[in-house]
Design a protein around this nucleic acid. Structure first.
Length: 206
DNA sequence: GTACAGATTGAG
DNA sequence: TCAATCTGTACT
């Protein structure tokens, strides 16, 4: 399954001259027309979700709750609306002591061995690095993603792309229920299509 | 046209 | 616990 293969890969973003990246540590699969929780349930196609029908490797990004972006990677064939929601990243800043964001100039994180004690400054607020990308809305904010990235091809883009990272062992991958889709009914809501890396501090929820 | 719910987050 | 506030859908 493509979904699990994304775990451990590096999502790389170019912001001007700066390049920031994060390891994908949490994903959710949405498998198209049959999936009641998918935006493309019943082959539904609207202006919002039409990027989902592109060939795998494109980006599908949309807004929820009027304020948060959700970053998805399309995984299906053309016309086959399947995608993977990226729920959490482990930012490279966690290992490097440095960070840059579109929201603020680069700031050095406080040196500390424990990730939970490292901070970066965003809009004059200190944010725990471990709180930076542990949620689908948060990671989009950190990477400065918005509607303009919709339908962008990850293989062609000069501002965002994927790189291979450390391979994640099967034993390290946990499967669980997807989040926030109770409206889809028990059958679909209970599908274990959320995958995350065991013991990773950046996963949004246990 | 109006009403409403949602793949969330952060403040109080 | 709740407000923020965009988008598509299902109504009138």
């Amino acid at each position: 399954m493509v979904t699990k293969d994304l775990l451990g890969k590096l999502l790389v973003r170019r912001l001007g001259k700066k390049i920031i990246s994060g390891k994908i540590v949490e994903v959710e699969a949405y498998i198209g027309p049959k999936d009641r929780a998918s935006h493309a349930f019943g082959n539904k196609k609207t202006k919002r979700n039409e990027a989902e029908y592109l060939i795998g490797g494109h980006i599908y990004i949309y807004l929820v709750y009027g304020m948060h972006w959700q970053f998805n990677i399309v995984t299906g064939k053309e016309g086959s609306p399947e995608c993977v929601l990226i729920r959490a990243l482990e930012p490279a800043v966690a290992n490097r002591h440095e960070c840059s964001t579109r929201l603020d100039s680069p700031v050095k994180a406080r040196r500390a061995n424990d990730t939970n004690k490292k901070f970066v400054k965003i809009r004059d607020k200190l944010v725990k690095i471990s709180e930076l990308t542990n949620g689908p809305g948060k990671l989009c904010k950190w990477l400065g993603l918005n509607k303009s990235f919709n339908a962008e091809d990850l293989a062609e883009s000069q501002r965002i792309w994927l790189e291979d990272g450390a391979k994640i062992k099967k034993e390290q991958i946990i499967a669980s229920k997807r989040i926030g889709i109770d409206y889809a009914g028990k059958y679909w809501a209970n599908k274990k299509w959320r995958f995350y890396i065991k013991d990773n501090k950046f996963v949004s929820k246990l």
